[in-house]
Design a protein around this nucleic acid. Sequence first.
DNA 1: GACAGATTTGTCTATTTTGCCAAATAGGAA
DNA 2: TTCCTATTTGGCAAAATAGACAAATCTGTC
Lengths: 96, 96
Amino acid sequence: MINDTKYVYMTQVMKAMAHPTRLFIVDLLNEREHCVCELQEQIGSDMSTISRHLAVLRNAGIIDSRKENNQVFYRLLCPCVLEFYHCVADMNHKRS
Amino acid sequence: MINDTKYVYMTQVMKAMAHPTRLFIVDLLNEREHCVCELQEQIGSDMSTISRHLAVLRNAGIIDSRKENNQVFYRLLCPCVLEFYHCVADMNHKRS
DNA sequence: GACAGATTTGTCTATTTTGCCAAATAGGAA
DNA sequence: TTCCTATTTGGCAAAATAGACAAATCTGTC
Protein backbone atom coordinates (compact mmCIF):
# COMPACT_ATOMS: atom_id res chain seq x y z
CA MET A 1 0.00 0.00 0.00
CA ILE A 2 2.66 2.44 1.08
CA ASN A 3 4.72 1.48 -1.95
CA ASP A 4 1.97 2.47 -4.37
CA THR A 5 3.26 4.63 -7.19
CA LYS A 6 1.08 7.37 -5.78
CA TYR A 7 2.95 7.57 -2.50
CA VAL A 8 6.36 7.13 -4.06
CA TYR A 9 5.83 10.05 -6.39
CA MET A 10 4.08 12.21 -3.80
CA THR A 11 7.00 11.67 -1.50
CA GLN A 12 9.45 12.77 -4.15
CA VAL A 13 7.50 15.97 -4.72
CA MET A 14 7.17 16.68 -1.01
CA LYS A 15 10.86 16.10 -0.45
CA ALA A 16 11.66 18.42 -3.31
CA MET A 17 9.61 21.16 -1.66
CA ALA A 18 10.93 20.46 1.82
CA HIS A 19 13.72 23.00 1.84
CA PRO A 20 13.49 26.75 2.44
CA THR A 21 15.72 27.62 -0.50
CA ARG A 22 13.68 25.47 -2.84
CA LEU A 23 10.42 26.94 -1.60
CA PHE A 24 11.88 30.36 -2.25
CA ILE A 25 12.88 29.31 -5.75
CA VAL A 26 9.35 28.09 -6.44
CA ASP A 27 8.04 31.45 -5.28
CA LEU A 28 10.42 33.31 -7.55
CA LEU A 29 9.59 31.12 -10.52
CA ASN A 30 5.90 31.67 -9.92
CA GLU A 31 6.37 35.32 -10.90
CA ARG A 32 8.26 34.51 -14.06
CA GLU A 33 11.04 32.51 -15.61
CA HIS A 34 14.50 33.11 -14.12
CA CYS A 35 17.99 32.14 -15.15
CA VAL A 36 20.31 30.56 -12.60
CA CYS A 37 22.37 33.70 -12.12
CA GLU A 38 19.25 35.73 -11.27
CA LEU A 39 18.25 33.12 -8.73
CA GLN A 40 21.70 33.23 -7.24
CA GLU A 41 21.50 36.99 -6.89
CA GLN A 42 18.26 36.65 -4.91
CA ILE A 43 19.34 33.69 -2.82
CA GLY A 44 22.98 34.38 -2.19
CA SER A 45 24.35 30.83 -1.88
CA ASP A 46 27.01 29.22 -3.97
CA MET A 47 25.87 28.71 -7.54
CA SER A 48 26.68 25.01 -7.38
CA THR A 49 24.36 24.69 -4.42
CA ILE A 50 21.58 26.43 -6.31
CA SER A 51 22.15 24.23 -9.31
CA ARG A 52 21.71 21.19 -7.12
CA HIS A 53 18.46 22.56 -5.67
CA LEU A 54 17.20 23.18 -9.18
CA ALA A 55 18.05 19.62 -10.15
CA VAL A 56 16.00 18.32 -7.24
CA LEU A 57 12.98 20.36 -8.28
CA ARG A 58 13.36 19.34 -11.90
CA ASN A 59 13.68 15.65 -11.09
CA ALA A 60 10.44 15.89 -9.18
CA GLY A 61 8.76 17.40 -12.23
CA ILE A 62 8.02 20.70 -10.51
CA ILE A 63 10.11 22.90 -12.79
CA ASP A 64 11.61 22.70 -16.25
CA SER A 65 14.50 24.43 -17.99
CA ARG A 66 15.48 25.75 -21.39
CA LYS A 67 18.80 27.00 -22.68
CA GLU A 68 19.25 30.39 -24.23
CA ASN A 69 22.80 31.07 -25.32
CA ASN A 70 24.95 30.30 -22.35
CA GLN A 71 22.22 30.76 -19.79
CA VAL A 72 19.67 28.28 -18.48
CA PHE A 73 16.18 29.53 -17.70
CA TYR A 74 13.91 27.74 -15.29
CA ARG A 75 10.15 27.93 -15.11
CA LEU A 76 7.48 26.54 -12.81
CA LEU A 77 5.56 23.67 -14.39
CA CYS A 78 2.93 23.39 -11.72
CA PRO A 79 1.79 26.63 -10.12
CA CYS A 80 -0.77 24.61 -8.21
CA VAL A 81 1.93 23.66 -5.72
CA LEU A 82 1.52 27.18 -4.46
CA GLU A 83 -2.09 26.62 -3.49
CA PHE A 84 -0.66 24.48 -0.79
CA TYR A 85 1.03 27.59 0.56
CA HIS A 86 -2.30 29.11 1.50
CA CYS A 87 -3.54 25.98 3.15
CA VAL A 88 -0.39 25.76 5.21
CA ALA A 89 -0.31 29.46 5.98
CA ASP A 90 -3.85 29.17 7.34
CA MET A 91 -2.82 26.27 9.51
CA ASN A 92 0.06 28.26 10.86
CA HIS A 93 -2.20 31.20 11.59
CA LYS A 94 -4.76 29.11 13.42
CA ARG A 95 -2.28 27.50 15.75
CA SER A 96 -0.48 30.71 16.65
CA MET B 1 14.20 36.37 2.98
CA ILE B 2 14.60 32.63 3.07
CA ASN B 3 14.52 32.76 6.86
CA ASP B 4 11.08 34.35 6.92
CA THR B 5 8.73 32.61 9.32
CA LYS B 6 6.71 31.66 6.28
CA TYR B 7 9.45 29.54 4.74
CA VAL B 8 10.56 28.06 8.03
CA TYR B 9 7.07 26.83 8.81
CA MET B 10 6.31 25.75 5.24
CA THR B 11 9.49 23.72 5.26
CA GLN B 12 8.50 22.00 8.48
CA VAL B 13 5.15 21.04 6.99
CA MET B 14 6.68 19.82 3.74
CA LYS B 15 9.26 17.77 5.60
CA ALA B 16 6.54 16.26 7.70
CA MET B 17 4.69 15.15 4.59
CA ALA B 18 7.83 13.97 2.79
CA HIS B 19 7.63 10.34 3.80
CA PRO B 20 5.47 7.59 2.31
CA THR B 21 4.36 6.26 5.69
CA ARG B 22 3.33 9.71 6.85
CA LEU B 23 1.45 10.38 3.63
CA PHE B 24 -0.35 7.13 4.17
CA ILE B 25 -1.18 8.12 7.73
CA VAL B 26 -2.62 11.41 6.51
CA ASP B 27 -4.77 9.50 4.04
CA LEU B 28 -6.05 7.18 6.75
CA LEU B 29 -6.79 10.05 9.11
CA ASN B 30 -8.66 11.81 6.36
CA GLU B 31 -11.33 9.10 6.53
CA ARG B 32 -11.67 9.27 10.29
CA GLU B 33 -9.85 9.37 13.58
CA HIS B 34 -7.62 6.38 14.30
CA CYS B 35 -5.79 5.13 17.35
CA VAL B 36 -2.14 4.19 17.09
CA CYS B 37 -2.81 0.47 17.19
CA GLU B 38 -5.19 0.73 14.24
CA LEU B 39 -2.58 2.64 12.30
CA GLN B 40 -0.01 0.02 13.12
CA GLU B 41 -2.30 -2.69 11.83
CA GLN B 42 -2.60 -0.89 8.49
CA ILE B 43 1.04 0.08 8.20
CA GLY B 44 2.84 -2.88 9.67
CA SER B 45 5.96 -1.22 11.04
CA ASP B 46 7.14 -1.19 14.62
CA MET B 47 4.84 0.79 16.85
CA SER B 48 7.69 2.96 18.06
CA THR B 49 8.40 3.94 14.49
CA ILE B 50 4.78 4.88 13.92
CA SER B 51 4.72 6.86 17.11
CA ARG B 52 7.68 8.88 15.85
CA HIS B 53 6.01 9.53 12.54
CA LEU B 54 2.92 10.74 14.37
CA ALA B 55 5.06 13.07 16.46
CA VAL B 56 6.54 14.59 13.32
CA LEU B 57 3.08 15.25 11.88
CA ARG B 58 1.83 16.65 15.16
CA ASN B 59 4.80 18.96 15.61
CA ALA B 60 4.11 20.35 12.18
CA GLY B 61 0.52 21.07 13.21
CA ILE B 62 -0.95 18.68 10.66
CA ILE B 63 -2.60 16.33 13.11
CA ASP B 64 -3.71 16.39 16.73
CA SER B 65 -4.34 13.73 19.34
CA ARG B 66 -6.62 13.00 22.24
CA LYS B 67 -6.48 10.31 24.89
CA GLU B 68 -9.32 7.93 25.58
CA ASN B 69 -8.58 5.47 28.34
CA ASN B 70 -5.24 3.95 27.50
CA GLN B 71 -5.43 4.68 23.79
CA VAL B 72 -4.42 7.76 21.86
CA PHE B 73 -6.55 8.84 18.91
CA TYR B 74 -5.17 10.99 16.13
CA ARG B 75 -7.10 13.17 13.74
CA LEU B 76 -6.28 15.31 10.73
CA LEU B 77 -6.36 19.02 11.51
CA CYS B 78 -5.97 20.24 7.99
CA PRO B 79 -7.69 18.17 5.29
CA CYS B 80 -6.61 20.80 2.81
CA VAL B 81 -3.19 19.18 2.65
CA LEU B 82 -4.92 16.53 0.60
CA GLU B 83 -5.83 18.99 -2.11
CA PHE B 84 -2.17 19.01 -2.85
CA TYR B 85 -2.49 15.33 -3.69
CA HIS B 86 -4.62 16.10 -6.72
CA CYS B 87 -2.29 18.79 -7.94
CA VAL B 88 0.64 16.43 -7.66
CA ALA B 89 -1.23 13.50 -9.15
CA ASP B 90 -2.04 15.65 -12.18
CA MET B 91 1.60 16.61 -12.54
CA ASN B 92 2.59 12.98 -12.44
CA HIS B 93 -0.01 12.11 -15.02
CA LYS B 94 1.07 14.83 -17.42
CA ARG B 95 4.71 13.87 -17.42
CA SER B 96 4.13 10.14 -17.84
C1' DG C 1 0.29 -2.02 45.23
C1' DA C 2 1.29 -5.31 41.29
C1' DC C 3 -0.03 -6.14 36.53
C1' DA C 4 -1.29 -5.65 31.62
C1' DG C 5 -2.04 -3.12 27.39
C1' DA C 6 -1.05 1.08 24.68
C1' DT C 7 2.06 4.52 23.63
C1' DT C 8 6.22 7.28 23.94
C1' DT C 9 11.10 8.07 24.57
C1' DG C 10 16.39 6.99 24.92
C1' DT C 11 19.97 5.31 22.39
C1' DC C 12 22.42 3.56 18.76
C1' DT C 13 23.49 2.66 13.79
C1' DA C 14 22.71 3.12 8.94
C1' DT C 15 21.24 6.03 5.36
C1' DT C 16 20.22 10.35 3.16
C1' DT C 17 20.67 15.16 2.48
C1' DT C 18 23.35 19.52 2.39
C1' DG C 19 26.81 22.63 1.03
C1' DC C 20 31.27 23.72 -0.24
C1' DC C 21 35.34 23.54 -3.30
C1' DA C 22 37.40 22.29 -7.36
C1' DA C 23 37.07 20.44 -11.81
C1' DA C 24 34.37 19.64 -15.99
C1' DT C 25 31.23 21.16 -19.58
C1' DA C 26 28.77 24.19 -22.93
C1' DG C 27 28.32 28.26 -25.82
C1' DG C 28 29.61 32.58 -27.59
C1' DA C 29 33.21 36.17 -28.49
C1' DA C 30 37.88 37.58 -29.62
C1' DT D 1 41.96 28.13 -30.98
C1' DT D 2 41.83 30.60 -26.74
C1' DC D 3 39.25 33.05 -23.49
C1' DC D 4 35.27 34.15 -20.76
C1' DT D 5 30.86 33.51 -18.66
C1' DA D 6 27.21 30.44 -17.07
C1' DT D 7 26.10 26.15 -15.35
C1' DT D 8 26.64 21.37 -13.87
C1' DT D 9 29.03 17.56 -11.70
C1' DG D 10 32.52 14.82 -8.63
C1' DG D 11 33.95 14.20 -4.22
C1' DC D 12 33.99 14.89 0.46
C1' DA D 13 32.70 16.10 5.41
C1' DA D 14 28.97 17.70 8.38
C1' DA D 15 24.28 17.48 9.63
C1' DA D 16 19.68 15.55 9.58
C1' DT D 17 16.57 11.60 9.26
C1' DA D 18 14.88 6.77 9.75
C1' DG D 19 14.21 2.50 12.02
C1' DA D 20 15.07 -1.00 15.51
C1' DC D 21 15.23 -2.46 20.24
C1' DA D 22 14.84 -1.79 24.99
C1' DA D 23 13.30 0.90 28.69
C1' DA D 24 10.08 4.24 30.56
C1' DT D 25 5.40 6.11 31.07
C1' DC D 26 0.45 6.25 31.50
C1' DT D 27 -4.09 4.37 32.50
C1' DG D 28 -7.25 1.20 33.88
C1' DT D 29 -7.92 -3.53 36.24
C1' DC D 30 -7.20 -7.01 39.72
